[in-house]
Amino acid sequence: MNIIVCISNVPDTTTRIKYKPGNKDVDYTGVQWIINPWDELALTRAIELKEAGTVKKITVITVAKADAEPTIRKALASGADEAIRVDASPVDAWNTALNLAEALKNEQFDLVICGVESSDYNNWSVGGMLAEMLRIPSVSAVTSLQIENSKPIITREVDGGRQQVSIKLPGLLIVQKGIAIVPRIPSMRGIMSARTKPLKVVTGVSGESLIEIVDYEAPPQKSSCKIIDSENLEMLAELLHTEARVI
């Protein structure tokens, strides 16, 4: 089975976000870049399946300019076999999905895996959009993936529990926490072998955006915390009722 894992290059999740003057763009100077955490879990699971022998080839794909290559190399070092970089600066989720779809039309694959959201724009969009553009079935909220006799056995979260399903191939999975727990750390052997693994660069499609961010601002500061004496917890109940009005 050949798996495509879509990865996004995002600022480290502990980054303090700053903006350029005018607050229309994020100031990325000095930012440490990482693989989007959900994509990294997706990749980790794909690698586990490859090690178990049920996956033949893992290809990672991203839509980004050349400065995302360290992130791509890390994915290769972690255990992906090949990488595709769609050379474009995506302008919104739609545009990202479109670029991925165009590039994947020329690829052979059985399963595409996308993280449920990216930690930068939190759009929850690309996976579903990509599936629709590729006209392939998708399963969302996926928390585990096994492959038995070349058939994917998928667990997805449903209200109040979970459901096990299978999907006709080629298909797309939108995965969340649970698909893997701890992301794979690349080994030195992996880092060495990443040097020679193929990284293909394909031309992107031009940028039409359906959504545009016109302003960024910092979230409002919380007012300071009221400390309640641990000997007087009645006060907490009282304040939650009369002041906060939540109970």
């Binding site: 290559e69 360290p70 190399r73 890390k74 070092a77 701890v182 992301p183 750390i185 690349p186 080994s187 030195m188 880092i191 990443a194 040097r195």
Partner: peptide, 18 residues
């Protein structure tokens, strides 16, 4: 180099996580 940074990151991830 890219590789040096990757090794640094791998060591950091291992240290901070494990």
């Amino acid at each position: 180099t890219g590789e040096q940074l990757m090794i640094q990151q791998a060591a950091r991830d291992y240290a901070q996580r494990e």
